[in-house]
Design a protein around this nucleic acid. Structure first.
Length: 584
RNA sequence: CGGGGCGUAGCGCAGCCUGGUAGCGCACCUGGUUCGGGACCAGGGAGUCGGAGGUUCAAAUCCUCUCGCCCCGACCA
């Protein structure tokens, strides 16, 4: 289609809005794509909506191709469904709750497992009706503790969510793989650089899951990927290969050293002139109350000084639902020393240490005595007792658990990612609770095996910009650009305007979407706006070019301000179509 | 929820400390000169100073409460 700039609402702005800090947010605001309405709530202006729709359509095409069927479930939900699975309570403050005039509980849908499950249990009786994969593109509502980054993390956002129903595990696995392939195609078509990453399956019954992480330095998720094989994982979930054995040192005697007022690893390392890698960092965590520990259990988690404790892994290792870092008072009570001087030697309580920490020879640890540390601590000699468990986050340089195990030499590289999609097998978590069952071939009644698959559509708008921009503005991938061609006319002389109109019509006829900047503005203004808006190709027609029956063609990706190609007006439609890969 | 910051014209900000009746840049409107990388000159319109209460002869400025937004940490597509 052809859109004239003078008839469009494309409010570009020169100045950087104060509330935006990351590139995508700044550029989407400046380019006139979105505007804020409230915290985590946004208007999509015409350009923004076109991008959103383009992404939706790619997703829709690939979902349909994969055999999923589109449905539309309500955003406004009666509370009874979430109550049926206890999520009414479990979801907590994230749920936007509403009361109707009669005082009944309602909420806005943050996700739709219960609703599809209900839909399916009402209609499906027999294994003959399975498998099924239903999806929708819907507005979701989550009262996020902290919305941020514009449409990157909103409280209202557009999501594609799909749900599969199978008769058995094998079928569920097939559905999952099918979605995995569909997602790969989607992310590739959108022009995004991404990694499929092993993720923490979370609290809810998922055993198999993967995140589609769009790589971007501004991403909130830390991921690691092997430099040799295709293993990649969220650092919170990454398994860690065996570290190579270091050289053997003669074991020293444990000795206490005076370390006045230096509690942090960095400070003690400097004070003692010992590398942080030789430290055993000891942190105290509290696991929630259980039968064995009615007041909660204080445990010590030890990792090497340069490593980080991973609370999810720690909770898993303890069999606890969650753990929290102990308060200062807890630490002092448990160790008898101020914070910064905790250590496993002589600690009365459970101690967990990760393999890299366990291997340390002559480690430095806190002495459980204020202003004192111990040196020469060795687990192998029994200086302290501990369970060796993987309780740390993976980091750059760690050996890969996959190819490392087979003699390969792969190591992790660290990346930042934006979670653009998440797929997982749910099993019977919802179907069992909600009695979504079918009659199998042998006549038995069984719960359906479910999977669920999400893509953050509106988040991908921002993700794409994070990945595709430069100092001047956005550089949309062709597949999701709001228009293909930015037609700039310089001057408003009839010859120029007529030539532009003729060219635009010829392009539209070929299915090319054209934004024609027909404003009476100076060239500089138009070029700046064109760069900011970021359409893949810019075509310029002015009095100078028209005198030669020509126009200029320039790719947005071309950084050279003069890096354009002169094309005769007669050949322009074909040449442009070819540039877009849309030639006949 | 903890920590920090901000609310003054459509946007970006100054003024607040030390009360005296609101200013700058951009944008907008009019006229003129300009016209290939965010022009220039002249003139002009536009603000319940987030809201409520208080102190005072006088409050954008001081005090109390309140609402909103942003940023940094624990959650998620």
């Amino acid at each position: 289609m052809l859109q004239r700039f003078t008839q469009a609402l494309i409010p570009t702005v020169k100045e950087t809005p104060a509330e935006a800090t990351n590139a995508s947010h700044i550029l989407l605001l400046r380019g006139g794509y979105v505007r804020q309405v409230g915290a985590g709530i946004y208007n999509f202006l015409p350009l923004g909506l076109r991008v959103l729709r383009k992404i939706e359509n790619v997703v829709r095409q690939e979902m349909d191709r994969a055999g999923a069927q589109e449905v539309l479930m309500p955003a406004l939900l009666p509370g009874e469904y979430f109550k049926e699975t206890q999520r009414w309570d479990l979801y907590g403050d994230v749920l936007f709750r509403i009361r109707d005039r009669k005082g009944g509980d309602y909420h806005l849908g943050p996700t739709h497992e219960e609703i599809v499950t209900d839909m399916v249990r009402r209609e499906v009786r027999s294994y003959r009706q399975l498998p099924l994969n239903l999806y929708q593109i819907q507005t979701k509502f989550r009262d996020e503790p902290r919305p941020r980054g514009g449409v990157m993390r909103g409280r209202e956002f557009t999501m594609k969510d799909a749900y599969s129903f199978d008769v058995d595990e094998l079928g569920a696995q097939r559905s999952y793989e099918n979605m995995r392939e569909a997602y790969k195609r989607i992310f590739e078509r959108l022009g995004l650089t991404f990694r499929i990453v092993q993720a923490d399956s979370g609290a809810i019954g998922g055993k198999t899951s993967a995140e589609f992480q769009v790589l971007a330095d501004s991403g909130e998720d830390a991921i690691v990927a092997c430099d040799e094989c295709d293993y990649a994982a969220n650092v919170e979930a990454a398994e860690i290969g065996a570290l190579p054995k270091g050289p053997e040192f003669p074991k020293e005697e444990v000795r206490e050293v005076h370390t006045p007022n230096v509690g942090s690893i960095a400070d003690v390392a400097k004070f003692l002139k010992v590398n942080a890698k030789r430290f055993l960092k000891s942190l105290l965590y509290v696991a929630p109350a259980s039968d064995a520990h009615p007041h909660g259990e204080v445990v010590m988690a030890c990792v090497r000084g340069d490593h980080e404790v991973n609370e999810i892994k720690l909770a898993n290792a303890l069999g606890a639902r969650e753990v929290h870092l102990a308060t200062e008072a807890d630490v002092e009570r448990a160790t008898g020393a101020k914070v910064g001087f905790a250590g496993p030697v002589g600690f009365k309580g459970r101690v967990l240490v990760d393999p890299a920490g366990a291997e340390l020879t002559n480690a430095v640890t806190g002495a459980n005595k204020t202003d004192h540390h111990l040196m020469g601590v060795n687990l192998s000699r029994g200086d302290y007792a501990a369970d060796v468990k993987d309780i740390r986050s993976a980091a750059e340089g760690d050996p890969c658990p996959r190819c490392g195990a087979h003699g390969g030499g792969g190591h992790f590289k660290a990346y930042k990612g934006i979670e653009g999609g998440h797929i997982f097998i749910l099993g019977t978590h919802y179907s069992a609770k909600m009695r979504a069952t079918f009659l199998a071939q042998d006549g038995s009644e069984r719960p359906m095996i479910m999977g669920c698959y999400g893509i953050g559509i509106s988040r991908l708008v921002a993700s794409a910009v994070e990945q595709h921009h430069d100092q001047d503005g956005i550089r949309w991938p062709l597949a999701i650009a709001p228009y293909h061609v930015h037609l700039c006319t310089l001057g408003t002389e009839p010859e120029v305007m007529n030539a532009a109109k003729a060219l635009a019509d010829a392009l539209v006829e070929r299915g090319i979407d054209v934004l024609w900047d027909d404003r009476d503005e100076r060239p500089g203004v138009k070029f700046k706006d064109a760069d900011l808006i970021g359409l893949p190709w810019r075509v310029t027609i002015g009095a100078k070019t028209i005198a030669k029956e020509q126009c200029e063609l320039k790719a947005r990706s071309n950084r050279d301000p003069k890096g354009h190609e002169l094309v005769t007006l007669a050949n322009a439609p074909e040449r442009i179509a070819a540039a877009l890969g849309m030639a006949d």
